[in-house]
Amino acid sequence: MSARAWVFGDDVDTDAIAPGAWMKFDIDRLSRHCLEALDPGFAGGVRPGDILVAGRNFGCGSSREQAAQALKRLGLAAVVARSFAGLFYRNAINLGLPALECAQAGRIPAGAEIEVDLEAAAVHIAGAESLRCAPIPPFLLELLRAGGLLNQLEQRLAAARERKPA
């Protein structure tokens, strides 16, 4: 996947990603306000396949998985950050949004064309360097390939039903 990088700083919190005032609405409506406090042009400007790049502790704060869901709904293909808040990281993978930890994420310029390789755990900056990332554990890669936990559970339950016909 090759796409534009949207760059944010450290400690981007889930209240910024999924603002509370819009939490009572569905994800289409909520996602239109995603990160508006930090970049009012973000939600409207993201093109499918774009990648969000951030500093330390991305997604800190609330457990609301709508944060990961809103980013996915806007079409972001992945989030690359220097580090993630643990809860957000779990939510992202569970919702099928790839999250890649990259100690050198700060080297990615805003608007750069970048490519993310999940299997190789690398980010390639077009016309420049490649950055190594922390590898995603195999069982989480599998979860991502299934498209998230809901899909994986569905497949597992279906397989179990086949093994044991009612």
């Binding site: 998985e65 569970n94 919702l95 559970l153």
Partner: peptide, 12 residues
């Protein structure tokens, strides 16, 4: 704390 989808996994 966990998110709702992970909670789905737990309650199932």
């Amino acid at each position: 704390g966990i998110g709702a989808t992970e909670m789905l996994g737990v309650v199932v």
